[in-house]
Measured scan of single mutants.
Amino acid sequence: MATGGRRGAAAAPLLVAVAALLLGAAGHLYPGEVCPGMDIRNNLTRLHELENCSVIEGHLQILLMFKTRPEDFRDLSFPKLIMITDYLLLFRVYGLESLKDLFPNLTVIRGSRLFFNYALVIFEMVHLKELGLYNLMNITRGSVRIEKNNELCYLATIDWSRILDSVEDNYIVLNKDDNEECGDICPGTAKGKTNCPATVINGQFVERCWTHSHCQKVCPTICKSHGCTAEGLCCHSECLGNCSQPDDPTKCVACRNFYLDGRCVETCPPPYYHFQDWRCVNFSFCQDLHHKCKNSRRQGCHQYVIHNNKCIPECPSGYTMNSSNLLCTPCLGPCPKVCHLLEGEKTIDSVTSAQELRGCTVINGSLIINIRGGNNLAAELEANLGLIEEISGYLKIRRSYALVSLSFFRKLRLIRGETLEIGNYSFYALDNQNLRQLWDWSKHNLTITQGKLFFHYNPKLCLSEIHKMEEVSGTKGRQERNDIALKTNGDQASCENELLKFSYIRTSFDKI
C-alpha cells in the first residue's frame, strides 16, 4: 500500500482533458527560462521544448504516446526543470519506465491550478516501474492521483506527508504495488545497510526511497516546507523545498512566496507586481503582455491589467481597466465587458449561442446573426445582446428569417469595421425574408467608422429604411451602385405612401 494514499474509496472516473512563447529569463536562482504550460502528445517531438525550461508557468501534460519505446527515452533528460506552477499529468506514455532521468531536479509542483483537485496525476502508464522524482520536495496545493499503472512499484516507500501538507485526498490505487509483488529495495538494503531515512506512518517504520538508488530526502521537522541542505541544516524561511546553503534567500532552489532578481522575498516591493503567484514583474512586463494579447485571437491570451499590486489576466467583477495605466478602477454604474472572439468572429444561430455573449459591452471581433427560429426570440436576444455598444469588426445579418427588427441591439452605437466582410463591408444584410426595420432612427444613433453597407434580398425592408441608415451611420456616399439592390429590397412591402385627393359631386333626387 502506498504510504499516505487512500484505498478502496469510491472515486469519480478520471477524465483526461485534452506555445513556446518565453516569458522571460528567471535569473540567477533558476538555471534556465520560464516556459508556458505545455500539452505534449502523440510523439516526442515537442518534448524537446523543455530543454531550457527551469519553470513551467502553467501545467505540463505528457500523454497518448503509443509508439514510443524505452530506448526512445534513454537520452532524454531535462535537468534544468525545477518547478511547475500548476500540475504534472502523465497518461498512456508507452515505453517510459521512470522519471528519474527525465526530470531529475523537479523540486516543486505548486498546484496553482489543479487537474480535478490533483497536482500530480500518473494514470495508465503501462510501462512505468517507478516514479523516480527523487528531488520532489513540495506539492504546495492539491493532491496526488496514481492509478492503474500495472508495473509501478516504489510507492509504499514514499512518505507523501513530507511532500504535501495533507495526504487525506491522495488516491493511489490499482498499481502493481497493490499486489505486494514489488519487493522494493532501498539503497544499501541488499548489503544489509540502512542508507535512507525511515519514518513512521500508520504504525509502520519504513525506509523512504524513490528507487533502488535514490533515497527520499527527509528534512528535520523544524525546517517545515522550506527544505534543508545535504547536511540537514534548514533553508531560509522564504525558500521552498530545498537550498544549497542554509538561511540564505539567494540560495533557495525555489521560493515559498515570490522570486525577485535572484532572491526569494515575502512580497513584491514597489515598483514590482505579483505575477502568477510566484514571481515579481515590473510595469513594462505587464504592459507588454497586455499589448501582445490586445489584437491576438490565441486562446488563453489575456490583456493583463494591474489590481491590488498584482498583474492579473482581467479586472475583477465591479472594476474596469483604465487604459492609460492598466489599473483596475471601480465602475460607475454597470461595468464594461470586452469579449474577445477566439477566431475573430462568432455566429449567433440560437439563443444558446447568444447567451455566451451575455453582459458583453464591447465585441472584439465580428458578429454573424443567422437565426431561423426560436421561442420568445426578441426578448431572449435583447437579454443577451442588448448591452453590446461596440463591435470592432463587422455585423452580418444573414438568412435570419425569424427577425423582424434589429432593435434587440438596443445599445449598439459603434461598428468600427477594423475587419470587413469580403474585404469591403462593415454591415452586411443578406436574404432576411421578414426583416422590416433596422432601428427606430428617431431614437437610435449608430456610427460606422469604416467599410460599406450591403443589402440584398431583404424583400420587406424598404429602401427608405436603408437610406436612413446611410445618413445616420455616416456611410452615405461610400456605397457603390450594386451594394444596395434596388429590386430585391422592399419588393414585397408597401414602401411608397402617396396622399390621394378626392373630389365629389353631391346629387339628390331633384338636383344634379
Rank of each mutant, 00 (worst) to 15 (best):
L29H: 09
P31K: 08
E33V: 08
E33D: 15
V34L: 07
C35R: 00
D39R: 10
L44S: 08
H48A: 04
H48T: 11
E49Y: 09
E49D: 10
L50K: 00
N52P: 14
S54Q: 13
E57Q: 10
G58F: 00
H59K: 00
I62F: 09
I62M: 08
L63V: 14
L64P: 03
M65S: 12
F66S: 08
T68D: 07
R69S: 05
R69K: 03
E71H: 14
D75V: 15
S77L: 09
P79H: 06
P79N: 12
I82S: 08
M83R: 00
I84Y: 00
T85M: 04
T85H: 04
T85K: 04
D86S: 03
D86V: 00
L88R: 01
L88P: 00
L96A: 02
S98K: 03
T107E: 04
T107R: 03
V108F: 02
I109Y: 00
F115T: 07
N117R: 06
L120A: 12
L120Q: 00
I122T: 03
I122E: 01
E124T: 01
L128N: 01
K129Y: 08
K129F: 05
N135D: 05
L136T: 02
L136V: 08
M137V: 11
M137N: 11
I139S: 01
I139P: 01
I139N: 01
T140Y: 08
S143H: 14
V144F: 02
R145C: 09
R145T: 03
I146S: 02
K148Q: 08
K148H: 02
K148W: 03
N150K: 08
E151R: 05
E151A: 13
E151Q: 13
L152Q: 06
L155H: 13
L155A: 06
L155Q: 11
I158T: 12
I158K: 04
D159Q: 13
W160K: 02
S161T: 11
R162K: 10
S166T: 15
N170T: 07
N170A: 09
Y171H: 12
V173P: 12
L174A: 13
D178E: 11
N179P: 07
N179G: 10
N179D: 04
C182S: 08
G183H: 07
G183K: 09
G183W: 11
G183F: 15
G183E: 13
G183V: 10
D184H: 08
I185F: 07
G188M: 15
T189L: 09
K191Y: 12
T194D: 06
N195W: 12
N195H: 10
C196F: 10
A198D: 11
T199K: 09
T199W: 11
I201Y: 09
N202S: 11
G203P: 05
V206T: 15
V206C: 00
V206K: 06
C209P: 03
W210M: 11
S213Y: 07
Q216N: 14
K217S: 10
S225N: 13
S225K: 08
G227D: 02
G227F: 12
C228R: 02
C228Q: 03
T229H: 03
T229L: 12
A230I: 06
S237T: 07
C239W: 00
C239G: 01
G241Y: 08
S244P: 05
Q245S: 07
P246S: 15
P246A: 13
D247E: 04
D248A: 06
D248V: 04
D248I: 03
P249S: 06
C252K: 01
V253A: 13
N257R: 12
G262H: 02
C264L: 00
C264T: 00
V265D: 03
C268I: 01
P270M: 04
Y273E: 02
F275P: 01
W278H: 10
S284F: 01
S284E: 15
F285H: 09
Q287R: 14
Q287P: 12
L289P: 05
L289E: 09
L289S: 11
H290V: 11
K292P: 07
S296G: 12
S296T: 14
R297N: 11
R298C: 15
C301R: 08
Q303V: 08
Q303K: 02
Q303N: 07
Y304E: 05
I306L: 04
N308E: 14
N309H: 10
K310M: 06
C311K: 02
E314Y: 04
C315F: 03
P316S: 02
S317W: 13
M321P: 13
N322E: 00
N322M: 03
N322K: 03
S324D: 15
L326N: 13
C328S: 03
T329A: 06
P330W: 07
C331L: 04
G333R: 03
C335M: 03
P336V: 13
P336A: 04
